[in-house]
Design a protein around this nucleic acid. Structure first.
Lengths: 189, 189
DNA sequence: CCAATTTGCCTAAGGGTATTAGGCAAATAC
DNA sequence: GTATTTGCCTAATACCCTTAGGCAAATTGG
């Protein structure tokens, strides 16, 4: 029997695809082995364990998301930038639901520091440069934006808004309008 | 051997406690059987299967949450009501992380209809009566509030905001201020 | 109050996933 | 071209989930 050419890299990518197809929860070392037509134990030369695989997929997703966000923000400011970043999250979640779910993983500080989490915070902060917010309000606003983006996307992709008018695209636009208005007019304590 | 007095009800409650202790993902028919000092197969007289158990825990959590919300909203209006509802979600997630995680389960329409999901929407709508929002803006606002509450609580309990000043209580207060200001001043399309 | 029925928990068994240990052959290094 | 490393395999253990079938305790009804 020849070798299958397994690699931590390839396994992670295939795991991400698998996640998008069957859901991040269903990503399993066994399923991945089947996909490469290889015995399960063989993967353990490349992956520490099941958790390791999931962490790698999560970090991959965070990285991809940060790359897309950086692209989208280039040359934009103000509400334009706000909408661009928001749409990156929303679109990514729709295109890659499994990866997006993976990106929600909570890491231990060790792992988190190695990931792209910091890039996301920095990009959100960059957007706020288009508004007039001093610290600590800027941090409050970063957290609010993170909450809205994550919360909305997670509810929408989970079907939480389905089967009701008005449609979610309309709501999404109006929420971005509302956030823009709020940031331009952030209330004093 | 006497009987253990198992009940779907008791199993669901114990499952919710287990979820708070070890995490909703770790809730398992086997662990529940151990807790009652009973063989695993015995649970299958009371539960359809593992998924059934998880669904029941999720519905229990949604119900408890709706009950707490209804209590908190009684006699309040405006920003008071907004903060009360928001705090119900946040406090519940802190006290009962496993149950809160369970409450995020996405149900099939059949199951969703039987659950307390509708009560939550109705209570959020009730709060908005204190603000001057006509449809469809009211629905947009309901979705925004749901997104913020869920997003914030999920990020905070997941440790997404840790290790950084200002502290999360401060951010939470200022976010509620901001939402109140936004609702009082909802931008026209 | 005893017989019949239902109900509750058990044993047994089959199938899936995770993980480790040890082996053989293909790739690589010298 | 031999020596070493590396990659995938077989084998084995340890969970977890689920169904089938059995026995005894509880309940029902005469």
């Amino acid at each position: 029997m020849g070798r299958a050419g397994l690699t931590t890299e390839r396994l992670t990518r295939a795991g991400a695809e698998l996640a998008d197809e069957v859901g991040f929860d269903q990503v399993t070392v066994s399923a991945l082995a089947r996909r490469f037509d290889v015995k399960v134990a063989s993967l353990y030369s490349h992956l520490k364990n099941s958790q390791d695989l999931k962490t790698r997929i999560a970090l991959l997703a965070l990285e991809e998301l940060a790359d897309r966000a950086a692209d989208a923000l280039a040359g934009r400011a103000g509400k334009d930038a706000l909408a661009a970043l928001a749409n990156v999250y929303r679109d990514y979640a729709r295109e890659h639901p499994g990866r997006y779910a993976a990106a929600q993983t909570r890491f231990d500080p060790q792992t988190a520091a190695a990931g792209a989490g910091g890039r996301h915070v920095q990009m959100t902060r960059a957007i706020l440069r288009g508004y007039d917010l001093a610290e600590p309000d800027q941090t409050h606003a970063v957290r609010l934006l993170g909450s809205v983006f994550h919360g909305y996307v997670s509810l929408e992709t989970g079907g939480g808004f389905s089967h009701s008018a008005p449609d979610t695209q309309e709501t999404w636009s109006r929420i971005l309008d509302a956030l823009d208005a709020l940031l331009r007019n952030w209330p004093a304590p």
